[in-house]
Simulated scan of single mutants.
Amino acid sequence: MNQEITLAATLPSTPRGARAARALVVAQLAEQKVPFEDAAQVVAELAANAVTHGRVRGRDFRLVLRLTPGSTLRIEVSDTRREFGPLPACGLPDAEAESGRGLALVSALAVRWGTDHGPVPLKTVWAEIDVASPISPDRGFHDPVDQYSVKHGT
């Protein structure tokens, strides 16, 4: 990984656009022989959130991917629904809930993640992944599903 990889794409705020974002990232990273599994999952979650919760009729979302020679992959997904404010905590929902686990997954796969606002009405959710050191038990990661099971005695 001696070169910087950059990808920027504007995609429709539809489920098809979210799937295209994931496919673009997989193709770009696979071409450069960079591990892409974690990045693909993070992009899928952030893009799905953008088209589900950040969608504004007639406005697209933007995907930016940057891989620096230092092996940090930064993923940014921007939408134009800023008025929803900060993201919720990434804790797990009730066991019966059908959704709400995406940000917990992003948190588990990323070294760090967050949001940026601006210029109005832009909201960007970003995540950074260390592609040289994929998730492993040695990094101190604990499966949030296992934590939930232990906490609630299931």
Results as ranks from 00 to 15, higher is better:
D143C: 15
L87C: 04
V145D: 00
A9E: 10
R66P: 00
R57L: 12
V56C: 05
G153Q: 00
H53E: 11
G140V: 05
V106P: 05
E76S: 14
L105E: 00
V51W: 07
D79M: 11
D60A: 13
P35L: 09
P12T: 13
P69C: 13
K123S: 09
A97P: 04
I5Q: 13
P93C: 12
K123M: 13
V120C: 01
C90Y: 11
T115Y: 03
G102F: 03
A95C: 04
W126N: 03
E4R: 15
N2I: 07
H152R: 11
T68D: 15
A127D: 10
D146F: 00
L24Y: 02
W126Q: 08
A89E: 12
L65W: 02
A30F: 01
D94A: 15
G54N: 04
V34M: 11
R57P: 09
S78Q: 11
D79H: 12
A27C: 01
P134S: 06
R66C: 06
L24G: 09
Y148W: 14
R74N: 06
S133L: 07
T68C: 03
P15G: 02
A27L: 03
A89I: 11
T10L: 08
C90Q: 03
L109N: 08
R22I: 07
V34L: 07
S149I: 04
S13P: 09
V145Y: 00
V150D: 00
G54F: 06
L87R: 11
A44N: 13
L67E: 09
R55T: 08
P119W: 07
E98K: 10
S107Y: 00
M1K: 09
S136T: 14
A39F: 14
S107R: 10
I129A: 09
A132D: 15
Q28S: 09
L24P: 01
A21S: 13
L7T: 14
K151Q: 11
E45K: 01
D138Q: 13
P137H: 11
V131Q: 11
A108E: 08
A108D: 05
V26A: 08
V64K: 14
P137C: 05
H53R: 06
M1S: 15
N49I: 09
T80R: 00
I5C: 04
G114N: 14
T52N: 08
A47M: 08
F61S: 04
D143P: 05
V106W: 09
Q3G: 14
D79E: 03
N2A: 13
L87F: 05
D146H: 03
P88G: 08
S99A: 14
